[in-house]
């Protein structure tokens, strides 16, 4: 297909730049999600299948039962640890639960691993891998700092904007969150909650 030559342009309008960054972010998040799927369908599946073959091996040679069984169980334990590491990496790339069930379930699962109480209030609606990925990791970044007080995260869609309110975390987290959502055209504002805690408000355009 022949393309029309692009008109000469020195300074692209701001709107185009926003769209370009957004597309870049979309590609990045989609790539991360695809890597997680590759780990699941590839390496992880192979290793799980190996544990079955090892189990079969010790079953088919009952004569050497005790030594073989001990060796096989040792290797199977090691393979479980390999898989745990792959799961950890997959979770840092793109949590499978985020892909399959969205922000609410994925953030709740992550909150369950936190030392402090975390309340997540999120709609069931889906917002695409880029917005969901950015919001998930932005919130996670606040939680892993070892927040001392109960954390509350409220996610709401208002027309074309996804609004995320985070309270009970360090005000310094606002900067980290901004880095995470900037490519998507997101903004971050710092205020105060009714209880006097820092209140971080994130707004991300979504369609």
């Amino acid at each position: 297909m022949a393309l029309d030559p692009a008109p000469p342009m020195l300074e692209p309008p701001a709107g185009d730049e926003v769209a370009r960054l957004r597309r870049m972010a979309q590609r990045q998040w989609a790539a991360r999600r695809d890597l997680e799927r590759r780990l699941h369908d590839g390496a992880a599946l192979r290793v799980s299948a190996l544990t079955l073959r090892l189990g079969l091996l010790s079953h088919l040679h009952p004569d050497e039962a005790r030594d073989l069984r001990t060796a096989v169980e040792g290797i199977q334990d090691e393979l479980h640890l390999v898989l745990q590491e792959l799961r950890d990496i997959a979770g840092r790339l793109y949590p499978p639960l985020l892909d399959e069930a969205g922000l609410g379930p994925a953030l709740r699962e992550a909150a369950g691993r936190c030392a402090v109480p975390v309340r997540i209030d999120a709609p069931d609606e889906r917002f695409g891998p880029d917005v969901e990925g950015a919001v998930y990791f932005a919130v996670l970044g606040c939680l892993s700092d070892g927040a001392a007080t109960p954390v509350e995260v409220v996610i709401r869609r208002q027309a074309d904007v996804l609004r995320v309110l985070v309270s009970g975390v360090d005000a310094c987290d606002a900067g980290t969150i901004h880095d995470g959502v900037r490519l998507l055209g997101g903004t971050v504002a710092l205020g105060e909650s009714p209880a006097g805690d820092a209140l971080i408000t994130v707004r991300i355009p979504c369609v």
Binding site: D41, L45, R46, S48, A49, L50, L52, R53, G55, L56, H59, L60
Partner: peptide
């Protein structure tokens, strides 16, 4: 849906 795991599990189930 993973053929490798499915085949492995089939063999182990039969062995059991």
């Amino acid at each position: 849906d993973g053929a490798l795991f499915r085949e492995g599990l089939l063999m182990l189930l039969k062995a059991a």
